[in-house]
């Protein structure tokens, strides 16, 4: 048995391409080196978090995955294919929901934009939108304009719009950074559930170490000037996670120490 397994294992492994792979990626803006020698991969269905000091290229890293930005050297691959530009398989939740939503469209209209883009037939849209609104807890708010919604609700609209395009990779750039602590916790639990349910691979950038450990299967810690990968930690905490129990778990506290010490060193 064992020798069969040993022979089959590499073959099986080769077939499962990582959802996101960075291969010796370097990016320069003029004379400034933003990221250098960045290599890592994220497995399909994994929830990966990225932390690091400001200026370490966290947002740049996401933009490289979107294809809005191309590396100066090295290669970024999505689902085994080198990134050539934006793809409907990839959605991104921006931190500044106020600027990412179309102010002249209602919540429903904003979600509809994604359905229009992927070519969902008109008669199916209403039903899909209703389901998405329900999923993000915004039933009954579909007719409101972004300006009439709270920050947390606006961010929910943006999340629903991203889910509407059915992405296989969901990128999030400090999505809860502008929200109050309580709303943030509620949305953390919601996004964990939604990502798990959709089966998408998540890459979540945050400056909040606790948030990274709470949400992630793995946490990538970057260091700055230029941005490099400094440390990777595996988060073995049981799921579903709980705002009280998980945060009091000895393993949570241990990982928090590890990351905190690391960030202090590289700051």
């Amino acid at each position: 048995m064992s020798h069969i397994n040993a022979r089959l294992a590499p073959v099986a492994k080769a077939r499962i391409e990582p959802a996101i792979a960075f291969d010796a990626v370097r990016l320069d803006f003029g004379a400034k080196r933003i990221v250098d020698g960045l290599s890592f991969s994220v497995a399909p269905g994994e929830f990966a978090c990225v932390v690091g000091p400001s200026g370490c290229g966290k947002t740049t890293l996401l933009r490289l995955v979107t294809g809005l930005l191309a590396p100066s050297q090295g290669e970024v691959r999505r689902l085994g294919v080198p990134v050539a530009g934006p793809s409907r398989d990839v959605a991104i939740v921006f931190q500044d929901y106020g600027r990412a939503l179309l102010p002249w469209r209602t919540a429903t209209g904003n979600i509809a934009l994604a359905l229009e883009a992927i070519g969902t037939p008109r008669r199916e849209r209403a039903e899909r939108i209703a389901a998405l609104l329900d999923k993000v807890g915004l039933s009954g708010h579909g007719d409101k304009y972004p300006a009439q919604l709270s920050g947390g609700m606006q961010q929910r609209v943006q999340i629903a719009r991203c889910l509407a395009q059915g992405p296989r990779i969901l990128l999030m750039d400090e999505p809860f950074g502008a929200l109050d602590a309580l709303t943030r916790q509620v949305l953390q639990d919601e996004i964990a559930g939604l990502v798990r349910e959709s089966g998408a691979t998540a890459l979540f950038v945050t400056h909040d170490l606790d948030e990274a450990i709470y949400l992630g299967d793995r946490v990538f810690a970057l260091e700055a000037n230029p941005g490099r990968l400094a440390e990777v930690i595996d988060v073995g905490l049981p799921r579903p996670r709980d705002q009280l129990q998980t945060r009091e778990h000895p393993e949570f506290l241990r990982l928090r120490h590890v990351l905190f010490n690391h960030v202090q060193k590289t700051h």
Binding site: P86, V90, A100
Partner: peptide
């Protein structure tokens, strides 16, 4: 807003 153009590009 440039962010809106990015949203549009991400949606293809």
């Amino acid at each position: 807003e440039p962010r809106l153009i990015e949203v549009a590009r991400m949606l293809g």
